[in-house]
Design a protein around this nucleic acid. Structure first.
Length: 678
DNA sequence: AGGCCTCGAGTTCA
DNA sequence: CTCGAGGCCT
C-alpha cells in the first residue's frame, strides 16, 4: 500500500506517461507500448485515484473518454452522446453487475453478448435514407467529420433500402482492418523504411484520418455495425437483425443468453477461438437484451449500466519491481528474480518473474522501482519484456550484484553469463544442498515420492542430511522429531527412499547432478558401461568401479561428450568428497542396477529421431520409454534431423515448426500403429 | 571459424 | 518455454 505522498508522485508519473502515449497514438499513429500494457497502466491509475479521490485532477486521463479531437477535421457534435462501457475482468465482476441489474430491475434480464472488435467507433447519420455524415467518436460528445473518407468504404451503404425509416437515422459501428491486411501494410512500411503501426486499431484510425480520401480508399477498411439506437425494436438482438436487413455487416458470432452461466461459457470459448478470427478482438460486450430494461437501468457517469465490456485476460501487463531477489540453484548458479506488485496476467496473478542473468538485467536496464512490461511466455512463465522508462523514479540505481551470498563469494566466470557461488564453497551452502536433494529426488531422477521442496528444506535445516547419502541413513525416530511429520508421512517417506534404491543406473547418474550431465548424457554413459560389462544385471559397485577407471580421453570418445563434459565427469569422479558419497551410497545398499540385454534388438524405430509435443494420453516418459525400446531416439526440439513429430492435444510451436519443415506428424494412434508393426 | 543441433538448467502458478 | 553453451559437421 502506497502512502499518500508516494501515491501522489506515482500518479503524476502515470498521467504524464499515459498522456505521452496518447499523443503518440493519436497524433502520429505509433506507439512504443502495447495496448495491453497501456491498459494496465490506466488500470493502475484509476485504482490509485479510487483510493485517493482527493488526488484526482481535472486533467487526469481518467477523466477523459478515449479519443480526443484532431486538428484538420470539422468538429461535429453527436446528437446522442457516444458512451463508453465499464470494463469487467473476471467472473466475479460479471456476477456483480448481474446482481445489480437484478436489484434495479426486480427481475433477471436476458443478455446478448457480442465480440468487441478491435477498431475504432464511428457514427453514421442518414437523412431520408441517404448518408449525410460519418463522425468519429472523439470524446463522446464531439467527434471529427470523416464523411468524405468513409464514403470510400464498400461496407458503408450510401443509400439505405426502403425498410429504413425516413428522417434522421443513426447507425453505429466499428471501423477495422483485418489481421492479414494489417500485416501486409506493415510489411510495405518496412520495405519503404517507414515506421510500422503498433496495432490494427491505430492503422484503421490512421487510415481514416487521411485528409485525402483517395488514401483511405487504398486501405481495405471495413465497417461493422454494432447498434442502431434509433431503430424501433424490442431487443438488442433485433437491432443487429435489422442492421443486417439494411445491408450492414454485423459480427456473426453474437449470442443470446438467458443466464450468466451461458454468458461465461461464451466468453471462455472465445478467449481461445478469437485467435482464429480474421480480425482482432480484445473482449466482448454483454448487453441487457431487452431495450426497455436497458433504458430503465440508465446511465451513470459516462457509461450505461445496461452493458459492460468484458476484457479477455491480457497476455501483457505492467507492474512495479519492488525488489530483485537472488536465488542459488543446485549448480551454484545465482539467478535474479524480480519481485513484483501482484498483477493479473492471462488469468493468473503474477508476483515474480525471472530476470535470467546479469546480461538480461543489463540489456533491459531493470532497476528496483521500475515499472516493467510483462508477458507470459508460452502461456506459463512470466517474462519481463521492457522497462517503461518514463515511469522510472529518479532515485532508481542500476542493479549491482553483491560480492557475497550467504557469506560465500560470488564470481562470474570468464565468458559466462551467470554468476556462481564459489564452487568449492557451494556445498557448504544449505540452499545449494537443498536444491541438490530436490533434484536427486525429482521424478526424472530417483523419483522419491514425498521428498519435495518443503521436505528437503526441513531435512537440511535440521542438519539430518548433509549429503545425498545421508538420505539413506534417515530413521523413523529422526523424522518423527521434525516439525510437520506424522507417523504416516514419515513411514511413506522412508518407504519411498527404500524403493529408490532400485531405480535404473541412468536415473541415479542423472540425479547426482554432475555438471553437464543431464538425462541424455547419463544414458550415454550407461550404454558405454553396458558395452564394457557385457550382458547381465550390474550393481552400483561394479558400474562405479568401471567409471573410475576412465580417463578424460576415454570419456571424450563417447558420442556427444567433448572436452568440457569429459572434464566435468572426470572431476566429479576424482573429487574426494564425491568419492565418499558414492562409496556410502554403495554401502547403504543403493543398487541402481544396470540391465544389459542379450542384444538390443533392432526395433522399427532404429535410427529414427522423434519429438513429442502437446498433451498425450499417458505420461510422456512412458511413451518415450516405448520409443526407445523400439530403437528410436526422443529429442526435445524439432529440427531438420527430426524424423517424426508425435502431436497430442493442444500442441503448439513444435507442431508448427514440424509443419514448416515438412516433417511427418503422427498422432498417438499413428505412433501405436508403427510400434505394433514390429 | 561459423552454423546448426541438442542438451542442460532454470522458471511460475494453481 | 527459453536461453546459453557444448559438440560436431562443413
Amino acid at each position: 500500500m502506497l502512502s499518500r505522498a508516494q501515491a501522489s508522485a506515482r500518479l503524476q508519473l502515470l498521467r504524464r506517461e499515459i498522456d505521452r502515449q496518447r499523443a503518440l497514438v493519436h497524433e502520429h499513429d505509433t506507439s512504443d507500448l502495447s495496448e495491453a500494457a497501456l491498459d494496465s497502466l490506466k488500470h493502475e491509475l484509476s485504482a490509485l485515484e479510487a483510493q485517493y479521490p482527493e488526488l484526482v485532477t481535472p486533467d487526469s486521463p481518467s477523466q477523459r473518454v478515449a479519443g480526443g479531437v484532431l486538428p484538420g477535421f470539422r468538429k461535429v457534435a453527436h446528437t446522442q452522446r457516444m458512451l463508453s462501457l465499464q470494463d469487467v475482468f473476471s467472473r466475479e465482476e460479471l456476477e456483480g453487475w448481474h446482481e445489480r441489474n437484478l436489484k434495479l430491475l426486480g427481475e433477471a434480464p436476458s443478455y446478448y453478448v457480442e465480440l468487441k472488435l478491435d477498431g475504432f467507433s464511428l457514427s453514421l447519420v442518414y437523412e431520408n435514407r441517404v448518408l449525410a455524415t460519418a463522425v468519429t467518436r472523439g470524446d463522446g460528445m464531439v467527434g471529427e467529420d470523416v464523411t468524405a473518407q468513409i464514403r470510400t468504404l464498400d461496407s458503408v451503404p450510401l443509400e439505405l433500402p426502403p425498410e429504413a425509416p425516413a428522417g434522421r437515422f443513426e447507425v453505429r459501428g466499428e471501423v477495422l482492418i483485418t489481421k492479414a491486411d494489417f500485416h501486409l501494410i506493415n510489411e510495405e512500411q518496412i520495405k519503404e523504411g517507414k515506421p510500422v503501426y503498433a496495432n490494427p486499431r491505430n492503422l484503421a484510425a490512421g487510415s481514416v484520418r487521411q485528409l485525402d480520401p483517395a488514401l483511405t480508399a487504398k486501405r481495405r477498411l471495413r465497417f461493422v455495425c454494432f447498434g442502431v439506437p434509433s431503430a424501433e425494436v424490442l431487443t438488442h438482438e433485433d437491432e443487429h437483425l435489422f442492421a443486417r436487413q439494411l445491408g450492414f455487416w454485423v459480427e456473426p458470432h453474437s449470442k443470446a443468453c438467458t443466464s450468466t452461466d451461458e454468458v461465461w461459457d461464451f466468453l471462455q470459448a472465445w478467449d481461445t477461438e478469437r485467435n482464429d478470427l480474421p480480425y482482432g478482438t480484445d473482449g466482448a460486450v454483454v448487453n441487457v437484451q431487452e431495450r426497455a430494461y436497458f433504458q430503465k437501468l440508465g446511465v451513470v457517469g459516462k457509461a450505461p449500466r445496461g452493458a459492460v465490456a468484458y476484457k479477455f485476460p491480457a497476455e501483457e501487463g505492467t507492474s512495479v519491481v519492488r525488489d530483485i531477489e537472488l536465488t542459488v540453484g543446485r549448480t551454484g548458479v545465482v539467478t535474479p528474480t524480480a519481485l513484483l506488485d501482484p498483477v493479473q496476467l492471462a488469468g493468473t496473478t503474477v508476483q515474480r518473474a525471472t530476470l535470467h542473468n546479469a546480461d538480461q538485467i543489463a540489456r533491459l536496464d531493470v532497476r528496483i522501482g521500475d515499472t516493467v512490461v510483462l508477458r507470459k511466455a508460452g502461456d506459463i512463465i512470466p517474462e519481463v519484456l521492457s522497462v517503461v522508462m518514463g515511469l522510472r523514479p529518479p532515485s532508481a540505481l542500476p542493479f549491482q550484484y553483491p560480492e557475497t551470498l550467504g557469506g560465500v563469494p560470488l564470481v562470474r566466470a570468464e565468458g559466462e553469463v551467470a554468476y556462481r557461488v564459489d564452487p568449492a564453497a557451494a556445498r557448504t551452502l544449505g540452499a545449494v544442498l537443498q536444491r541438490q536433494i530436490e533434484h536427486f529426488a525429482s521424478r526424472g531422477a530417483m523419483d522419491i515420492r514425498g521428498l519435495g521442496e518443503q521436505t528437503a528444506a526441513t531435512l537440511v535445516e535440521a542438519g539430518l542430511v548433509r549429503s545425498l547419502a545421508d538420505l539413506y541413513l534417515l530413521t523413523f525416530e529422526q523424522l518423527m522429531s521434525l516439525e510437520g511429520f506424522a507417523e504416516i508421512s514419515a513411514q511413506n517417506l522412508l518407504a519411498s527412499i527404500q524403493a529408490s534404491k532400485d531405480r535404473p543406473l541412468s536415473k541415479l547418474i542423472y540425479g547426482l547432478g554432475i555438471r553437464h550431465v543431464g538425462e541424455e548424457t547419463a544414458r550415454t554413459l550407461c550404454t558405454f558401461l553396458g558395452q564394457q560389462l557385457g550382458v547381465g544385471r550390474w550393481p552400483l559397485a561394479r558400474t562405479i568401479a568401471v567409471l573410475r577407471l576412465q580417463t578424460e580421453a576415454s570419456l571424450q570418445a563417447l558420442p556427444d561428450v567433448g572436452a568440457v563434459v569429459a572434464s566435468a565427469i572426470h572431476t566429479y569422479l576424482t573429487d574426494s568428497h564425491e568419492q565418499v558419497v558414492l562409496d556410502q551410497l554403495i554401502d547403504l545398499g543403493v543398487q541402481a542396477p544396470l540391465e544389459v540385454q542379450a542384444q538390443a534388438r533392432a526395433g522399427v524405430l532404429t535410427g529414427k529421431t522423434l519429438v513429442l509435443t502437446g498433451t498425450l494420453s499417458r505420461p510422456r516418459e512412458e511413451v518415450a520409454l516405448e520409443i526407445r525400446a523400439a530403437g528410436g531416439k526422443v529429442s526435445g526440439s524439432v529440427s531438420s534431423e527430426t524424423d517424426y513429430v508425435v502431436a497430442g492435444e493442444k500442441a503448439g510451436s513444435k507442431l508448427r515448426e514440424a509443419e514448416r519443415l515438412g516433417i511427418t506428424v503422427l498422432d498417438e494412434a499413428g505412433l501405436a500403429e508403427m510400434l505394433d508393426a514390429a
